[in-house]
Design a protein around this nucleic acid. Structure first.
Length: 657
DNA sequence: GGGATTTTATGAA
DNA sequence: TTCCATTCATAAAATCCC
């Protein structure tokens, strides 16, 4: 098959992400672009690695073809039944009641640069460096220049190309202006990047009795008035389709897909699969070369084969694409990892490699401090001189954040890989502990909620484990310990005996919670436990017996009331942090955070005792978790959500009919 | 053997 | 003359460990 014309036109087989057509590239001489990219790349280490990866994909395609060929008529009939059943289920989940908008700024970074420097107007412009371009304006796109293309190739395609370095502060500033406008149409809008967002305009349309077309026009005008920049929008009954629609009349245009099943199916029928978010170079290649699928509608025609080849998750995604069914609810995602990586000229010099890694550890640590994040899984990423990517990960006993901790654990990972010739080093932290609004675990009990609601959760989780599983944990840094203690173990022991009399296996979660609360309280106000234990313990015990003394009521209400006021029902009055109304748990936790802050401040006022160092609350008292196994790891996956980018080959252990 | 963790691959902006 | 980024999410496969 494929290897036909490689002799005459070798560039035709060299496909990269940026050889795919994008908005504004209609009149481009694709063959010329492809040839230039090939000529510039040929023979490089990068090129060789791309060929290696391409060969792996080809093998995969061959494997899948063989798998298809083995299917008997009976197999296919069986898979067709499974597919039809799933199609019916997905069809019945079709929701046409919502109106979604996808807004996408036109050549955002380039447009901002031109707005601030009008002399750039009309010139082909690329934002980014010599090694990589972030965005190209429409003048540059006529030459085949586009995002994710290395600068030196772009310059070859367009010798008059003007380069402007990126300036993210500037883009963030303009992005915030657009978000101000979005908020007026949907306070819970979903921002997916600096220049893209999804808005649910169902309510706006209904309340104001206007069509989605009018709202879309108004929105684009409002964005232009606020920023001086143009955007394109797509309107559709779900996010998957809205995203496709926003690309149709780019730039400075809009496309409305009505909320009618027939219109959607017509729209989908001829739509190339590559237009769908989540289907990239490899998936397109596989679907085309294995099953001959080019359009979304063909997903349904080949549904039996899809069921025979892919995982349930991928099948759901592909069939949804065929039906034009997509997500219609507003769901918020919390950060799951944070990373930093740098590319440099290849080196084998080990002292230099460690020096680079130390710099990255510092950057990462600083970024984590900005968001008060502590993580327990550290991943080292290496890209060798031959462009091969390796990752090495380790999960730790405690949560870390400091540069020293990150660097020392990364060093262990790196040492095992030496000797090495690398061009990139990266570090990533994940598995965060709670402590700030942005790192909240949705399953996490809130501090006040846990203590004052009696602590016990639904059913099984009613012993001291809940504290460990809830990831309330403490620093093992001697400097962070309460006065009079110098070892974390000593603290645990002293606290438990001091507060409960003796360490008791039968300790219920409520008393553990009390101990924990007193610990945290004493920790925050930096006072010996003995000075604050008595009254607090009494207070909580009395409350338990429903004693309604004024003091206890005060303590209770202080903890349960909303400490935070939400401006416009969106922004925290105390710190400006933004949390939409639907972030119920996160808001409660955020409130707890400020409560702890207030308790600390109050204690300073009362006792006139200055705190040492920076704000202890800010320090997020974490770290030091028991080695015990975690349970209910993925409890929040309800199985209904279809991730947009799950489309992998079905594993070997696939069930046969 | 099965759950947890690690590694690789894909995709998006 | 040089010569292909960074950050994040997620799924599947591979491996580890009890």
């Amino acid at each position: 098959m494929g290897a036909t014309s490689d002799g005459d036109r070798p560039w035709e087989s060299y496909q990269t992400v940026y050889t795919n057509a994008k908005a504004g590239m209609d009149g481009v001489d694709k063959e010329k672009v492809q040839r230039v990219i090939y000529e510039m790349s040929k023979g490089s280490k990068y090129f060789e690695n791309e060929q290696r990866k391409e060969a792996i994909v080809k093998q995969r395609i061959e494997r899948m073809r063989a798998q298809c060929a083995k299917l008997t008529a009976k197999d296919i009939a069986q898979f067709q039944m499974i597919a039809d059943k799933r199609i019916l289920e997905l069809e019945s989940s079709r929701d046409l009641s919502k109106i979604w908008v996808h807004s996408d700024m036109d050549a955002f970074y380039a447009a901002v640069e031109t707005l601030e420097n009008p002399s750039l107007k009309g010139k082909p412009l690329a934002v980014g460096g010599k090694s990589m371009i972030c965005t190209a304006n429409y003048e540059a796109r006529k030459f085949g220049v586009r995002a994710a293309m290395p600068g030196f190739i772009a310059l070859k395609l367009c010798p008059n190309l003007v380069f402007v370095p990126t300036n993210f502060d500037k883009y963030m500033n303009y992005s915030e202006k657009t978000r101000k406008v979005f908020r007026g149409y949907d306070p819970n809008f979903i921002a997916t990047s600096l220049d893209e967002a999804y808005l649910n305009i169902t309510t706006i349309c209904k309340d104001r009795c206007v069509s989605s077309q009018e709202v879309a026009e108004e929105l684009r005008n409002a964005i232009y008035e606020e920023t001086g920049l143009t955007c394109s929008v797509g309107v559709a009954p779900n996010r998957l389709l809205a995203k496709v629609c926003s690309d149709i009349n780019k730039p400075n245009g809009q496309f409305i897909l009505p909320n009618e099943r027939k219109a959607i199916l017509t729209f989908i029928s001829s739509l190339p699969i590559r237009k769908i978010g989540g289907i990239g170079k490899v998936t397109e290649h596989i679907l085309r070369d294995v099953l001959g699928i080019n359009t979304c509608q063909e997903m349904l025609k080949k549904s039996a084969y899809l069921c025979g080849l892919f995982s349930p998750c991928s099948i759901d995604f592909f069939l949804s694409v065929g039906l034009g069914v997509g997500n219609t609810d507003t769901q918020f995602r919390l950060r799951k990892s944070i990373s930093s990586e740098r590319t440099f000229s290849s080196t084998e010099d080990q002292s230099l490699i460690f020096k680079k890694m130390e710099e990255i550890a510092e950057t990462l640590s600083n970024d984590m401090q900005k968001e008060s994040l502590f993580g327990r899984t550290l991943t080292l990423k290496l890209k060798t001189t031959s462009f091969e990517v390796k990752t090495r990960a380790t999960s730790l006993q405690k949560y870390i954040q400091s540069k020293e901790d990150i660097f020392s654990h990364a060093t262990k990972l790196l040492k095992a890989e030496l000797p090495l010739s690398v061009r990139l080093i990266g570090l990533r932290m994940s598995h965060f502990c709670v402590g700030t609004p942005h790192s909240a675990d949705p399953m996490q009990k809130t501090l006040s909620g846990f203590i004052f609601s009696g602590g016990a959760s639904s059913s099984a989780d009613t012993n001291a484990d809940s504290l460990i599983d809830s990831e309330i944990c403490f620093s093992d840094d001697v400097n962070d310990l309460p006065l009079g203690y110098d070892h974390p173990e000593q603290v645990d022991e002293k606290h438990l005996t001091h507060c409960t009399g003796e360490r008791n296996e039968a300790t219920d979660d409520r008393s553990v919670a009390k101990v924990c609360f007193i610990y945290i309280y004493s920790f925050y106000i930096e006072m010996p436990i003995s000075s604050c234990t008595q009254s607090l313990m009494e207070g909580m015990d009395l409350m338990n017996e429903e004693d309604k003394s004024a003091d206890n009521r005060a303590l209770l209400s202080r903890t349960q009331e909303e400490v935070v006021l939400w401006i416009n029902d969106y922004m925290c009055s105390l710190c400006g942090c933004e949390l939409p109304p639907s972030f119920v748990e996160e808001r409660q936790e955020h409130s707890d955070y400020h409560l702890a802050e207030m308790l600390q401040k109050e204690s300073m006022d009362n006792f006139g005792k200055p705190t040492q160092g920076s704000n202890p609350v800010q320090k997020s008292p974490c770290v030091g978790r028991s080695a015990r196994k975690r349970r209910n790891k993925s409890a929040h996956n309800d199985g209904k959500h279809i991730p947009i980018d799950c489309f992998f080959e079905r594993s070997k252990k696939v069930r046969r009919p």
